[in-house]
Amino acid sequence: MNLELIPLLIIVLLMISAGGADVETTEFVIEGDHEITEHRGALIVGDATVTVPADEAVSGPVYVIGGEFRIHGTVEGDVTQLSGSLVVEDGATIDGELQHIGGSEELSTEATIMEQTTVAFESSEPSPIAAYTPIVLTTLILAVVGALLSRKHEPLLDNVGAAAKDHPLISLTVGALLSVTFLSVFVFMAFTLILLPVSILGLLVGLLIIAYGIIALGYLAGQQLNTPRVGLATGLGVVVVMVLLQVTGVIPILGDLIAGGLLLTGLGAVVLTYFGLQEFEPVSLPE
């Protein structure tokens, strides 16, 4: 599943939850081509192409968060589009409200739509300054937190950094396993709706651990400056790591692998050292 769908999926599940729909009848179509002729409850269109054939009617609400949703027949309920593509063909009918928040839409003038609203956002092509502001802000926050943490609790970062530096393979393996497993578990939890808060909390904690990992990697990078001002060195190191993550992201596939590997190594090192509270030592084996 496309990882970018996860935030949208959680938003949709929150919307379904708020709307009082029954989760047991909610269907999430993740991939492939599908013709839907019969459906009850909420329908979420992910990375798939979902078509409602002519002369067929499906019940809503329908949420489009990716892929393509084509209506030839009738949707008996609301359609909300957050991303992806929505095509409403000639003679198609939406009996409820069509709410367009994001993504591309193609609406035939011959289609019947009961009510249509558009939630307008700022221009989708932000200026370079606007585009980089979140990254710069994140970098600054991490650098400041890293500087403070290294001045007040240097041993914590020292332990995490040592695990990442001395045991990168173990850190990467643990980081990768934890992220794959817990990401799936949290998405799965979100579907139960009752565990949705736990799922959101879990994802936030995961992001915090990744941030901690970046700070620890920044601390390691800062040590190369050979300066007694550990706070300044860590802050600069965090900036270097963040720039590196951005630059590698430009290279297709390999860049993503490098960036992902760095983040997962940091995550693994944080977990292995109990957030830096103890040194990580692998089990002792005979040499």
């Binding site: 393979l169 173990i170 393996t173 643990v174 396993l177 692998p282 089990v283």
Partner: peptide, 11 residues
């Protein structure tokens, strides 16, 4: 391979 890393380095 992941299992090999874990087996070698953990309990």
């Amino acid at each position: 391979l992941a299992a090999g890393v874990i087996y070698t380095n953990f309990d």
